[in-house]
Design a binder for these strands. Structure first.
Lengths: 233, 233
DNA sequence: CCAAAAGTGTTCGAATTACACCCATGA
DNA sequence: TCATGGGTGTAATTCGAACACTTTTGG
């Protein structure tokens, strides 16, 4: 510390943009909280917290997510660092955002409620504090970009899912209708999916087969890229 | 400040990955310095500095670039924030990187030399301190990604350039040979370039026509994207 | 007149898009 | 038996990739 004395130090926070996907109402949702402290107490915000002296930014983000949802080992990636002097009216705070993709049905709802966190669809978000709307925008843009190149979509679905559910997810993210036959053709040609014998029978009489992704191929795609381009300008 | 008392504060730095392109030897270069302070005094590093209390991260990065090169209003974009606890052996420092694209011939060489900064080709970088190699890698990946989607390549070229020079630049960035006819076809079909009457006559007897980009269309492309895909796997 | 770099079109194959009907099932 | 959502193939078009020769000019 002595080496770098006489230098300004800063409050550093981490804010998490936690995405979830609701298979039933086919909407991308964000996990949001009501602030319990001033400033802007009672307004909605992303899940945020301070970075401790002895933890990395990544660790801080994971800690926040764990405390809020009970989830560990979730897909999470740094998005952007917000450093305007007056972005937080309470003090000069520098904040790094992370976006996480979670399986909505896996989170610990006791923990969630204890923290006053709620899922809200991105199509009708409440008013967010500070520059949190910009944070959400940027993370969403990043999600749309990445989903073309990594199979991140699956992080949002349950372990077993139908092709219809998978397509619904992509349509929700792109906000665009996708041709069913072309979609299936592309996906199945990747040899990424394993068809199960089981059917999902709640949404239709006929039932739709469940699929799982083949873990090995999936990991490979995560590393080397995916190229599933639905070319949404 | 009082509102957020009792919270750890951090040293926050900015590091700039400053790219330049040398038309003559057709290489992408980085502007690097020898550290004048401990730790690692004498080793090479990116241009870095502390973030002041009353400036944003963006401002800090611009200030560093200005002090080092005399350049203002340069293409500069935040890349990533590095927050491992022990990344800097001297102290716990959180550092946000920015990458800048500069016209190598426009920088103030007096200032540059005064600061002990040198251009080094990315193909043979000296050993860099700390996690600076990772910072460079990430910025380079980002540059390669962006050049497909925004016409950022032009930021690295002089105002007037030949099609050969432009292609050389793309080849330097991609490390890949591009078909001359296809390259020109694509580029000219975008109506982005304006052919001048003047020729560059140093590199050939015949001479190659200079081009400029059409500012209006250029700005438009920067906003809305570009789709200049040379599809490098 | 020749060496050296600039400039210029066409063909082929692959990939993407558009598009409509049959199937299985429970009520 | 019928209403509902699940599942399937082919033809047309577009786009990207490959490829070689002519032009200009200073020495």
């Amino acid at each position: 510390m002595s080496l770098y004395s006489k230098v300004a130090k800063h409050l550093v926070a981490v804010d998490c943009i936690i995405f979830g996907y609701d298979v039933l109402d086919k909407e991308i949702k964000l996990l949001l909280l009501k602030r319990s402290i001033e400033p802007s107490r009672g307004k909605w915000s992303l899940a945020g917290g301070w970075v401790k002296e002895d933890e990395s930014l990544d660790e801080a983000a994971s800690r926040l997510l764990l405390n809020l949802t009970g989830l560990n080992n979730v897909f999470m990636e740094q998005s952007y660092t917000y450093g305007s002097v007056n972005r937080d009216p309470g003090a000069r705070v520098i904040s790094t955002t992370y976006f996480a993709l979670t399986k909505i049905q896996n989170i610990d709802n006791k923990l969630r409620e204890l923290n006053g966190a709620h899922w809200r669809p991105i199509s009708s978000l409440p008013e967010l504090v500070f520059d949190h709307p910009a944070m959400v925008d940027k993370a969403l843009t990043e999600l749309r970009r990445q989903i073309k190149v990594k199979p991140v979509g699956f992080e949002l679905l349950p372990e077993k899912f139908t092709l219809v559910q998978l397509q619904d997810l992509y349509e929700a993210i792109y906000q665009k209708i996708i041709d069913k036959r072309n979609f299936r053709k592309r996906l199945l040609s990747m040899n990424l999916l394993h068809k199960l014998d089981e059917k999902e029978t709640n949404t239709s009489r006929r039932g739709a087969f469940y699929y799982q992704f083949i873990q090995e191929r999936y990991n490979n795609f995560r590393k080397n890229g995916f190229y599933f381009n639905l070319d949404v300008n």
